[in-house]
Design a protein around this nucleic acid. Sequence first.
DNA 1: GAGTTTGAAACT
DNA 2: CAGTTTCAAACTC
Length: 971
Amino acid sequence: MDSPEPSSKSCTAPISSSEPVPAQDSPVFNYISNLSPIQPVKSAPIVQYFPGLNSPPLLFTSPRINAQSQSSLLKRSQFPQLSSEAFCGKNEDYNNVVTDSDGTRVSVSPPRSGLNPFVQKISDNSIFVHEQSGSPIRCVDEFLVDVSNSESGNPSNSTNTSLKVAESIPQSPNSAGDLKESVANIASKDARQDEIPEVAARVVVEQAEQDNKGNSSYNQKDIGACSSNTDPDLPPTSLCTEIVPYLPAHSSSHYHYGDRHMAQFSRVDCSMLDEASNIPIESLETARDCSNDSDTISTMSVAPDESIVQHDSQTKAGQHQSGISRRCLQFEDAQQKIAPASSGSQSASGIVSCSVAPVSPAVLEVVEQGLSNRSSTANDRPLTQLASSSVDSEKLTVKVPKPSGIGLHLNSIVNGMEAGSGATVSVKSTERGNLSICGKKLTSMVSCHPSKNMKNCLISSNVVGSNLTSGDNDGRHESYVPNTESVSASFLLNNAKPLNDTVLLKPTEHTPSHKRKFNSEHIDSPMDYNLSSPQKKRQKTSDGNVGDGCKRCNCKKTKCLKLYCDCFAAGVYCVGSCTCQGCFNRPEYEDTVLDVRQQIQCRNPLAFAPKVVQHSTDSPTNVVAEDGSSFTPSSARHKRGCNCKKSMCLKKYCECYQANVGCSSGCRCEGCKNVYGRKEEYGKDLVNRHCITERLERSVEEEVEMVTATSGLLQSDPRNQCNLTPLTPSFQCSNRGKNASKTWFTSGRYVSSPESGQANTAAYGLSPGSPRSSKNHDIDQETTDDILDIVPFDQENHGNAKLANEISPGFHVTDNTDDLLALPNSQDWASNSDNQLIPQTVHFQSTPLLCWRNSPMTPMTQFDRSGMNVLELLDSNKKPYVMEDDTPEILKESSIPQNGVKVNSPNKKRISPPHRHLNELGATSSGGGLKTGRKFILRAVPSFPPLTPCIESKDVAAHSTNNSQKDSSSK
DNA sequence: GAGTTTGAAACT
DNA sequence: CAGTTTCAAACTC
């Protein structure tokens, strides 16, 4: 539908959009399509998303770009005032705006940014910057949201971008109202909002409510003040201040996740900012000033993801987001917990959830709470909006199956988890609401298991942790750390807590009580908190979670400065509800807290990382979920595993159980009876998955064969053939493969170059300019056609890789081309001796995960494009075998990213080892094969115009056919 | 609410 | 890296 637009824009991002159209355009394609049952499917929207996301520019864009983006973001935040229009225009430039099927516009955020890894910032200002930077991202998201809103046609709604989005989403689509208009409306509203002097958070809530009513009286000033700290109302603890301290820590500590987390984080911040965007530009500017130092880049890079997420929310884009967002989970819990307090992070999460669409009310609530607490009114808005849209938090909660807290610290998880089952409606449910939201997100993203998806959701949500605060006496915690790493998406979900369960719907109400001033001001003296009514604690404790969903600690000796302390471990400050003694985990002691954190992180960089993470397998599983729920169980796993001796993993002593995740091979538990999955079962699950994948692959292969046979006519001319065979096996497979298969593919691809979304993106066409990109595009397109939905994010990639590994124990994906060679399930392929060429494609199809991971796109592309060459070289023997041989090895390495990147890298030309080598090496010399593949690819690329995916696909098909022919002949 | 159990975190 | 100690949550009464 919309695809056309995006596609056009997406030229750079060839993947998604281009495919369908070009392919269709080409007579060959039509011919082929007729021949093969397979149909390039992919909803335009999805494709669109990818392009935007993938857009090479983003990835490649230098940090500077980010800066720009930041500025733009800022503008965006300023939207109303400034250049909402301009902003919009920018977004459009990115292709961002794409209309969904619904008619809502989905904006693919462009990637302005780049990739800047997140900059570790340092000064508070820098932190601010992040926020701001984040805002940009957020801006994008918001923009999208706004767009949606605008589409909805409610200017008022536009004010609350996030909220609006949520509303719009549920409502659907809408209107195509101009963004500008929406912006203008917002701006006007913002002006109105000035009226409200109350705390921004509160304001936000109110606004949300108003929005619900149709009145958007959002007080930007408040927000802006908060951001700028100028707002007297806001306590010193205003987001800005808090965030700053935290952020640095996060950045430093979580550097790993860094980009992603940061991104998320930034997003959160951004969201806050964005929300705040309504806030006076000045405030934003001030923030910018502060932040200018820091690179907003990170956020920028993230932006795409966010955009994706939004899309997802509306459509499937969510998956991408999840992938992206996945990364950050940990803090989320805290954030979630905090959420109430921390508007920003929450907002972000909220945004995400919004994107998801149906954001659960709980989420909204959380957000609201956070908003109320915080100046991050912006966040609040979204939340409120969401809430308004969704209305009943409980309902939402219900949806959420489990709060599994992937990516969350156990603590946070615990909170969320208790619900474990999730479904409970009560407060827990509310808490879960977040989860549920997440789940939705997940679903959207993965479209798979909702329940377990929580984790995914979390990921997607990525709350930023930054902010947050929350804490109020109620137990809201301020998260000082937004671990980018932990990212808290998961946390959010888990913790989502219910801040105020009841409150959720009524943010405003909550705000007052909840609002906790971030900084020391707000915070009662630590002691106070400690002293704070034990009852509160008890309430929380009863569930395990605090009412907020946050856990309350009861530390006696550790001063809450060790990981023993759940609050500390979760990256949040202790709250009044905590009964800790001598607590130093309070805003007043930020420095101390941060120092300690750093120390701990030095000791163990992952100390604050989420303990529960989706398994790579999970992602696949999730993917599979579409097909069936079979995978569900293993969605998440404890990172380190448990070591239970007596509890049999049936009590909360067990971290796995506590996190509502099954035990895995990493667990050293004895007598494991974990209801969420036994350790022993874990392997079985993998095997089952593998079997499933194999089935899919086989079916795909069969299809491929069919196709090849049909395309045989074309064989004479490889290229022609290619054209003829438009249906690249992959397509077919994808087509065939159920949605799941598609997902697999998609994931696979992404996976293949998991390492960096960059790689992936590059592969996808992020770098359209590069020849490779073209190839990639081709591939991407192909895949996109099938996979458009696919999530390109790192997470997925990783996840895929993991999945691949998990699923097919034998398979380890490696980025290396060599691995790629190996990748393809050699066996399967081997069986299909006919199409060696195909195999690759098959690969994608059959074991998308594996294939992709192993050899991300390149291999495929290589084959495809080079098709002939490759085929010839590899020809009969090697491909399949290589694939096989490699697979196992590859599997071992999940670290695909690197390899994958390499593969993607244009330079890869590297050589293809002599075919002979390949032949000689056979499967073993996977590397050679890959290399060759690359070469071919390169060649192919040039030969083929960037083009349309169709061509590429054709090429691929031709290659496959040729290869198959050759293979057959050779044999 | 006190006491016990449990397993992770911290330490050696 | 393994073993021990410390710690706080989870659990029981």
